[in-house]
Computed example of a mutant assay.
Amino acid sequence: MSSIHLPVRIEFGLDSSITIGSEFRSLKCSKVMVVSDKGVINAGLLDKILKSLADAKVESVLYDNVVPDPDVKCVEQARDFYISERCDGILAVGGGSSIDTAKAAGALITNSEPIVSMGGMGKVKNPLPPLIAIPTTCGTGSEVTNVTVVTDEYHFKVPIISPYLIPKVAVLDPNLLTSLPPSLVAATGMDALTHAIEALTNKLENWYADMCAIKAIEMIGKAIRPAAAGGNVKALSEMLYASTLAGISFTLSRLGLVHAMSHPISGFAGVPHGVANAILLPYVMSFNLVGNPEGYALVAKALGIVGRSGVLETAKAGVEEVIGLNHQLGIPKSFKDVGVKENLFPQMITDTFKSGNVAINPRRVSEKDVEIIYQASFAGDSPLLFIE
């Protein structure tokens, strides 16, 4: 059985973020905690947003201690700040870390359990305060998802899954992406591509998720190169919208082995999530191809691959296209290039199998399989090694 439940309202378009004051007015909020990070603030992206709140007579206070891959301390500090300032709503402005921090803080505000105790599905018992999300990257899709991720004291990235974590409103304003450096457009864009590919090819079936995933892959395949080149607002718009579509797809259909393996890499080695996904993606696609060749052929066709004879050849061409994308976008070739140490592999392998995404991966996975993929992606071996 499949289920489609999308309580979020999506507003999109150039300068759509400057309507945020009226959005919170309609939610009957009078004082909002704005959750963001130093990069967003220094780029001046909050200026018009804060003015919109002020013009609507909505008071705002800023929590800007967001850290990459937010940990328990970060989200508890945000909760305490919200309570001490007597806020009645939350606005997240930023990438996945800011939106995840806002979601987790919101869960702590209305629920008494420790945040790590809410790990897994359906353990957030009470609705969050009114939450609106404005993404400033084109990767996580967190503005529409039912997930937040918090890093615990053992470096494990704890996924928390609940419909209560879906923001009330997602505001997609491409103008907020124009100051992103090319490397961040590339990494977050490949994160979005990974979301769509895994949602489309895993064992779960959801026709709506598949439709969103295929469209997201098509859009990313066309737009990611010009978007990463800089100065192309149309391409950045396409990437932002594709990221949201990919977020919808994996909210409905979940993910797969790339995410099961990339979370430990970020948790233990501090590799940015999008970079970890991008490096792993062609290796896992190659490994998984025999488990769902038809699904990976759909991926290839969505990426523009035509004229190949047979399902397997088309699917393999899709893997080659992703390898080429990584190269063109300047994604590091191997985990050795980004400072991962081989002595971390045993811990990372253990944590990989804590993820529920392993069970829905299109091909059955053993610890040895994960070790081989980690070793190959560490050394920078050909990602086609499983299908050559």
Rank of each mutant, 00 (worst) to 15 (best):
I4C: 13
L6K: 07
P7M: 04
G13C: 06
F24W: 02
M33R: 07
K38L: 12
I41L: 14
N42H: 14
G44A: 13
G44F: 06
K51V: 15
L53S: 05
D55T: 13
A56T: 05
A56C: 08
V61R: 07
N65C: 15
P68Y: 00
P68G: 08
P70A: 09
D71R: 11
D71Q: 10
V72Y: 00
Q77N: 15
A78G: 02
D80L: 00
F81Q: 09
I83T: 15
D88F: 02
L91C: 07
A92L: 08
G95L: 10
I99P: 13
I99R: 06
I99T: 04
A102D: 03
N111H: 04
S117N: 12
G119Q: 01
G120V: 01
G120D: 01
G122E: 01
V124P: 06
P127N: 08
P130A: 12
L131M: 11
I134S: 06
P135Q: 00
T136G: 11
T137C: 10
T140H: 03
G141W: 01
E143T: 10
E143F: 06
T145L: 07
T145Q: 10
V147G: 04
T151E: 01
D152E: 03
F156G: 09
V158L: 01
V158A: 06
I160M: 10
I160H: 04
P163D: 05
L165M: 08
V169T: 10
A170F: 00
V171P: 09
D173K: 08
L176G: 07
L184P: 07
A186V: 07
A187P: 07
D191G: 03
A192S: 13
T194Y: 00
K203V: 09
L204A: 15
C212A: 15
C212P: 10
C212V: 12
I214Y: 00
I217S: 13
I217G: 09
I217Y: 04
M219V: 14
G221D: 02
K222V: 15
A227P: 05
A227N: 04
A228E: 04
A228R: 06
G230M: 05
V233N: 11
K234S: 15
K234L: 14
L236T: 09
M239D: 01
M239W: 00
M239F: 00
S243T: 08
T244M: 12
A246W: 00
T251R: 02
L252V: 04
V258K: 03
H259N: 10
P264V: 13
P264E: 05
I265R: 09
G267V: 03
F268Y: 12
A269T: 05
V271N: 02
P272C: 09
H273K: 11
A278F: 08
A278E: 06
I279Y: 00
L280M: 07
L281S: 01
V284Q: 08
M285N: 13
S286W: 00
G295L: 08
Y296R: 03
A297P: 13
V299A: 08
G304E: 02
R308W: 04
L312F: 13
E313F: 07
E313G: 14
T314H: 03
K316L: 09
N326H: 04
G330P: 01
K333G: 13
S334C: 02
D337E: 11
V338H: 01
V340A: 05
V340Y: 00
F345L: 10
Q347H: 15
R363C: 14
R364A: 15
Y374T: 07
Y374M: 06
Q375C: 12
A376T: 12
A376D: 07
S382P: 04
L384F: 02
